[in-house]
Amino acid sequence: MALAKRIIPCLDCDKGRVVKGVKFEDIRDAGDPVEISRRYSEAGADEITFLDITASSEERETTVHTVEAIAGQVFIPLTVGGGIRTLSDIRTMLNAGADKVAINTAAVTNPEFVREAAERFGSQCIVVAVDAKKVSQPGEDNRWEIFTHGGRRPTGLDAIDWVRRMVDYGAGEILLTSMDRDGTKIGFDLELNKAVSEAVDVPVIASGGVGNLQHLADGVVKGGADAVLAASIFHFGEYSIPEAKQFMADQGIEMRLLASAE
């Protein structure tokens, strides 16, 4: 008997629509985040992460309505990230039904924001999302740096120091994305994952680079991740969530397996 490792499908949304769409069989609207969330939940997803990439703040109103609609129909935990910059942004998302918010750029710009957020709303709902890139040269000890703006802007912050500091400030979970691996489908940066997981006491979600089910299992077994996040392998129907869970369970990983598909 033990806590299960989690599988978290991630929906990237722009103006309330899932970007790139989702290829499920017989789905009515491949861009509707509410229907997609419901499908994933029924398939056994352990949580849903909703990443808002809407550029303009005026259109964020749409996101709030979408979060409300998901939370009204999907009864598993929901994390909302993207554009969370103020305590008022957090309150809005929690009131809309989000269970956690993911803070990324705003944490780098103003680290005290994370402390204030954790004090006000509790660590359990504050996820700090970090985008890390390897900066050490071959032959050197591994070193990763925090980047913002989709991996384009270096911050000079050492990734391990940074996650320790964020947890010290009250982050309840770390969403760790390897910018080297994101979109590559060659697997997580397991060394990065392991280093971060060993550096902090809070759960770490591995993200970036998943191309097959072995990558998910490796993230947990070799990377020390408490949860694995993936988008495209599920969205495009390459693998289903029950398949992924069974595959991981067969490798001895504790998983929440549903008695039936429904």
């Binding site: 008997m1 033990a2 806590l3 299960a4 490792k5 989690r6 352990d46 660590s123 359990q124 309840g172 979970e173 006491d201 809070v202 759960p203 770490v204 408490d226 949860a227 929440r256």
Partner: peptide, 19 residues
């Protein structure tokens, strides 16, 4: 630590069995 001596993360976050 768990039964195998593995370090457990806090918060206890996720799906666990209830007896």
């Amino acid at each position: 630590l768990d039964a195998n001596g593995q370090r457990l993360k806090v918060p206890h976050m996720g799906w666990n069995q209830v007896t």
